[in-house]
Nucleic acid binder design. Sequence first.
DNA 1: AGTCACATAGTATGAAACAGAACGTATGTA
DNA 2: TACATACGTTCTGTTTCATACTATGTGACT
Lengths: 180, 180
Amino acid sequence: MNLDMVRLTTTSYVVLGLLGLRGPSTSYDLKRAVGHSVGYFWHFPHAQLYSEPRRLAEAGLLDICTEDGGRRKQTFSLTEEGRRALQHWLAEPETEPMQVRDVAELKLFFSELAQEGDMLTLAQEQIRQHTERIGTYEEMQERFGSVDTVAPRLVPLKLGLAMERAALDFWKDLSSELEG
Amino acid sequence: MNLDMVRLTTTSYVVLGLLGLRGPSTSYDLKRAVGHSVGYFWHFPHAQLYSEPRRLAEAGLLDICTEDGGRRKQTFSLTEEGRRALQHWLAEPETEPMQVRDVAELKLFFSELAQEGDMLTLAQEQIRQHTERIGTYEEMQERFGSVDTVAPRLVPLKLGLAMERAALDFWKDLSSELEG
DNA sequence: AGTCACATAGTATGAAACAGAACGTATGTA
DNA sequence: TACATACGTTCTGTTTCATACTATGTGACT
């Protein structure tokens, strides 16, 4: 419909993509799906999973099917146009550069202003956090690796793991430098 | 003053931190400072460097010194309270977990919906982007390593580099898998 | 039957972040 | 004097985000 009125953001494509992978879903379905898949490496709050599909529907990229039962429940599905938009996005290799947001990194940048010992404590805590995350990721790889999920969906997890490992190594080095 | 009225965000601490490192500065000074330092690994738009100091001043964390000349120009500096807030933040090792936002990673997650060849093109473009960034970072390390900047400020750059290298390796592997 | 806990499902609200355009001021130079 | 350019600041409208709140269904225990 009025496609040109709606700006598609990354959030939009996450919604389109999830609907593509899962087929028709309600917002709540999406919310749960995010929770145990894409949510591990791309955060967003569930409220957007309610507002965004409506926006996309207005743009003609989604169909809404309203079930009237006890709860007003809406199931969304991709229209042809929606699928095209998604594929167009996937085919576009130029993307915004990867962004890392790490408050610990920031603190390190300002370390000159910190007290003796602060950075060592920071490093140790980071080691703990990254180790824990690596554990979670590895567990996921095992759990899903053989069973129910399709292999391609695990590939980005590998990148996440690699990043976490790089960070872990960094903080370990730093920590032993500070101790030594 | 009314410290409890203002929520301090990461943005706040970047401002406090920069003022700590540089001493009294105008918003414009901060803007330039961000441009060639912390800006490389922590993005934010310059408009915030005008609004945030005012917020902080209201909270009593900064002093404002207004020079009246041709331009109304305000120089900000840390108050004792500001310095304390900063040090308190630096001393706090628990931080939000590192977040990676990479649209390419997302696209990869949805690769099942993509056309033949899309992911190879994507991987190649990512290789290009990450290689370029690594170049920039390495150049910065050399440029600042010996000359004017203090060593601690280069440390976070090392983390950035490590992350970029991890990403580059990942995409290289993927690319050769897709080709092979 | 009552009520408790719990998972499900959706909405509301406001603050913060963000992009980017627009605006204004000084300085040099042709 | 006119113009280009760098400097410095503000404004505007979205987008994002966190969080709290509302409400509905279900099963379990009493």
